[in-house]
Each structure stands twice: as structure tokens, then as C-alpha cells.
Design a binder for these strands. Structure first.
Length: 220
DNA sequence: TGCCAGGCCGGGT
DNA sequence: ACCCGGCATGGC
């Protein structure tokens, strides 16, 4: 059983605080969470800039914006027709349920909110947890492809482990406060982007190197 | 120039 | 319950 708290400290010492999630508002964070599905953040920022440039970074404004216009604005984020619908689905829920207020949303409990988000077409577990943790400050751990890859390569978990299994694994070994869960996922993404890409060996200066098993990285 | 990027859905076994 | 194709742009 690896000391995930020590791994957390090693990454934090190496990279420093990540100040996640980047964004000017909780709504922007939630929208970014949907736009970044299987998409580089760099592309997402272009789409977010388009929305801000059109002054529609507002739940009611976006809800009113025709689907085709929304799609065009978010085109740089990829899957733009699909994501326009997904944004609309989320916004419809946000407007109907909370009159478009992310603050009102934040007043509801974690498990209720998570179930409701997961019932929205286009919002899966990672997007839901990202919104919960980074937009409304709920204590939930976000699992992504990097989390899976890093955990498997270090021999921490079975390669066949699914989302919920990984989530429970990390939550079981980490402090449960929002600040730690926030920082941990951000650090994992940082390490993953730099040092744990597909079919590449781990770099020599990876802060997680001391946490590898004796025989070195597990193939993935 | 391919490969990859902070997934998710729907239809088919 | 898995497995797979589809979805799309931009950077390295």
C-alpha cells in the first residue's frame, strides 16, 4: 500500500501549488469541465475566450443563445456540435433547478448534486466530479486518464479498475478536505501531462519516482 | 505527419 | 456488464 500522502507531498514540493481550477467564475469552471472532455485545455481556452468576448458567460444568456451560435463559438474545443448540446443540457438544468445560480447550486449536498449531474446527458463521472470539486467546492476526488495511468504504472491499482474503484482508492488514502483533493488532482494532471504520456517511460526527474515498485514502472 | 488531448453516449454483443 | 465507433479541433 503506497503512502499517497507522501506522494502528494513529493509532487507539491516539486511543482508547488497548482491554483486550480483556472477560471473567472464558477460557471466558467463548470463550462470548462464539459468542454475539456477528451480535449486539450489549450483548445478549451479559445472556446472560453470566444464566450467571454461575446459576453455570454452567464447561465441565462447562454440558455437563450441558439444552439448553432453556441456551437460556432465553442468550435475550437472540438466535438463542437456535441458539446453545444451538452452545455445546453447542463444550462437547462441549472436554470430550471437554481435559476441559473451556481451559488444556489452550491448550497445543495454532495451526493444529491452528484446524482443529478450524472443524470444530465453529456455529464459523466469525471465531469460531474470536476464541477462538484472545482466549481462548487464539494469534497470529491476527480479521476481522469492520468490518474488511471499513473496509478497503474506505479502498481497501485489493477489495470482493469474502473472510475469508482479508483475514486474510492484515492479517497480512502488521502485527507478528505477540499483543498487536498483539489491539489491532488491538479498535481496528477501536471505530472501526467509532462511525464506520464502514453507509451513513454517515466522521466528521470518525476517526483513520483520514489513511489515506483522495485522492478520499475508497470507497463501500460 | 500521425498521435494525442483533463470523456461520454448509444447500439451491439 | 463490457466493447466499440463516433464525435473534431489544434499543437507538437
Amino acid at each position: 500500500m503506497p503512502d499517497l500522502r507522501a506522494a502528494f507531498k513529493a509532487m507539491l514540493d516539486h511543482f508547488g501549488p497548482q491554483h486550480w481550477w483556472p477560471g473567472d467564475s464558477s460557471l466558467e469552471i463548470a463550462i470548462g469541465a464539459i468542454l475539456t472532455q477528451n480535449t486539450s485545455w489549450q483548445n478549451v481556452t479559445k472556446a472560453l475566450d470566444n464566450l467571454k468576448g461575446r459576453d455570454v458567460m452567464d447561465a441565462h444568456a447562454l440558455d437563450r443563445l441558439p444552439l448553432a451560435e453556441l456551437a460556432e463559438l465553442i468550435r475550437p474545443a472540438g466535438y463542437f456540435r456535441l458539446k453545444a448540446k451538452r452545455l445546453k443540457n447542463f444550462l437547462r438544468w441549472l436554470v430550471d433547478r437554481f435559476d441559473g445560480s451556481m451559488d444556489a447550486m452550491a448550497a445543495v449536498g454532495l451526493s444529491t448534486l452528484r446524482e443529478e449531474l450524472l443524470s444530465i446527458n453529456g455529464i459523466g463521472p469525471e465531469t460531474a466530479d470536476s464541477i462538484l470539486l472545482y466549481a462548487v467546492g464539494k469534497p470529491t476526488f476527480v479521476v481522469d486518464a492520468y490518474t488511471h495511468r499513473i496509478a497503474v504504472r506505479h502498481g497501485w491499482i489493477d489495470p482493469e479498475a474502473g472510475y469508482d474503484e479508483l475514486k474510492e482508492y484515492f479517497e480512502g488514502l488521502l485527507p478528505g478536505d477540499v483543498a487536498t483533493l483539489n491539489e491532488m488532482h491538479a498535481l496528477i494532471v501536471n505530472v501526467g501531462k509532462r511525464l506520464c504520456r502514453p507509451r513513454e517511460a517515466l522521466c528521470g526527474d518525476c517526483p513520483l519516482k520514489p513511489f515506483l515498485p522495485e522492478h520499475g514502472p508497470v507497463e501500460l
